[in-house]
Nucleic acid binder design. Sequence first.
DNA 1: CGATACGTCCTTTTT
DNA 2: GGACGTATCG
Length: 727
Amino acid sequence: MDFTKLNEKQLEAVNHINGPALLIAGAGSGKTRVLTQRIANLVFNHDVDPHQILAITFTNKAANEMRDRIEELIQGDASKMWVGTFHSICVRILRYNIHKLGYGSNFIIFDVDDQKIVVKECIADLKLDPKNYDVNTIRSIISNEKNRRKSAEDYLKENFNEFRARKIGEIYELYDKKLKKSNALDFDDLIVKTLDLLEQFEDVREYYKNKFHYILVDEYQDTNKVQYLLIKTLGKKKSGLENVFVVGDEDQSIYGWRGADINNILDFERDFPSAKVIKLERNYRSSQNILDAANSVIVNNTQRIGKNLWTEDNKGDKIQLYQANSEKTEALHIAERIYNEKNIHRTSYDNIAVLVRTRAQTRAIEERFLLEGIPYIIVGGQEFYGRKEIKDLMAYLKLLQNNHEDFSYRRIINVPKRGIGKKTIETLESYAADQDISLFEASKNIEKGSFPKKATEEINRFYDFIKLMGQKKEEMSLYDFVEKTYTSSGYRSMLEKDHTIEGKSRLENVEEFFSKVKDFEERSEENALEDFLAHISLLTDIEKTEETNIAKVSIMTVHSAKGLEFEVIVIAGLEEKMFPIIRESENDMEEERRLFYVAVTRAKKRLYLTYAQDRMIYGRYESRKKSRFIDELPQNLVNSNIKNIDAKSSKTFEPVFTGSYTIPKTIEDDAEYTNHSNKIFKIGDKIMHKSWGAGTIVQVKGDEITAAFNDKGIKVMMMPYAPIKKI
DNA sequence: CGATACGTCCTTTTT
DNA sequence: GGACGTATCG
């Protein structure tokens, strides 16, 4: 194998074979290359069988890429190597062993939305006032407790003397009971139950300890306590050969709020005293100016091992800071910058990312990009899988996977409408509760007379449908099965009957869902329903985002940007209370600073920072102060539009956008798209949009045009600015 | 029983 | 400003 492209430190890491090691890998220091080459080295030069290797990555996509890359390097098969996220690896272990904990191996995974529904139900069951027990708060308490390895029982014990906390403990307890009854696990359970399994069953523990001779963990700084214990359990060997190789960067630890413990990386040497520590500080991504900026901010943190990024690259451009009047001008400025990047620097749209601290910030930016015809993509969020029709279809599949899962049953029993209303369901529920059986079970032999005739018929029909599909599941391919479910349930005809714009877009979404099913079926070896459901549940934010063939600007949160890089980065909303967001402790502030550090180090060539003097918060304008992080930058590296930073500027709201400030378009072919002065668009017109392709106008309200695009769904545009033409 | 009208609360961040 | 929940009506 050719190691010539590695620097000295990287080579040292790749050649480290036995014994624990900690690789401190600064941003852009080529750690992925090290990880893959080290594994290839193990297999190719040191006779390690791929099935003895466990590699934990941050995303499933990274896992697949890593496997491909290794196969290329060793010119051989690495399919037996276990690579994946903590969650997907745990699912794999659980499928084989969870029966020992009293669960069925066909368990389903509950996402955050599912969790909330359960919590809400618990609050109602315990007759607590929802005003005093906020669903989101309690969901996150339960999650945090699980990540700290505290069971409901532990929590109740610890909080018995405080009324409210005790009640929360009771909710936690009931929540777990409900999940167990539905044979469901939430995200945190996936790790916790795996750990339970390894601790409680010696045979399981020994099996996996013996199997995995080499363990690699990426993004170690973001592991929480349970994940840490999992690695320690698997990694501690009798032989003393603790081949645990962890890679991380304490300066990029940004998931404290989700239980990640920065001490896992800070204390690695204590846990594995013989650990070799290698530090990668040479950066291959960014210009020196960008690195200087990053270094100068992060030195203000105390929780560090300490490192200083450097590059042999040149100084590069200065950082550009822009103070806007409001979030609207901020967005406008960003659009201008992107326009210049495109036309002056010839930067492709997909080499540009706009990073924000909170999802709410994306709206203003998105609206401006729509007006200016800048193609963009919002990475992550609830965009696709959060849609009602997709969740409904998933509920059908979950119910078919596990007939006794009441939450899905409830969701779809009357979708499409089957005349089974609230009353009927309540009766069914109380019957099921009395008998301590699932709703599905309860609907099996409902007594005549307890329900209206029509309802009885429909419940029976639904029961038969589930039963029948259960048989089909075994004989059909995944795709055909999903298709059959969609059609036979009546969901398809329900959507097809809906001729509103919304209905049409739902149909399109379902089509897209089907193409994902097909995709999964083709790419994955296993195509059991349970694998598909788990696959969908465990997708990361980035993976949920459509891949497109047109170049687009990415808009995303800093958290989503972890691990990515772009030529040009815009960080928006650099204001106190926004970035850093309001935090309670100094530790929290350090995490905010790390978050900013992550954002800055995503940039290869140019970095633009923006903030607004006034921002719309909950529908009211609020005065803002610029972020402390701006002051932590080396001021000689920053160009800014602020004339006198210290002077109290007299603030005037700029008027709502009037059109006078529109970006000059210079590219020739733009003219025919934007010169609408004497063209009038009306409903039914076929148009061509510069980035969305062909579409039809469905609504015109003044200057506001709504059009349905063939591939992109419904979009609203401002007529004078939208890059469209009649066709 | 389902569709519309108003009040409420909200924003961190995600597997 | 807007999503989401409860109240009220048809």
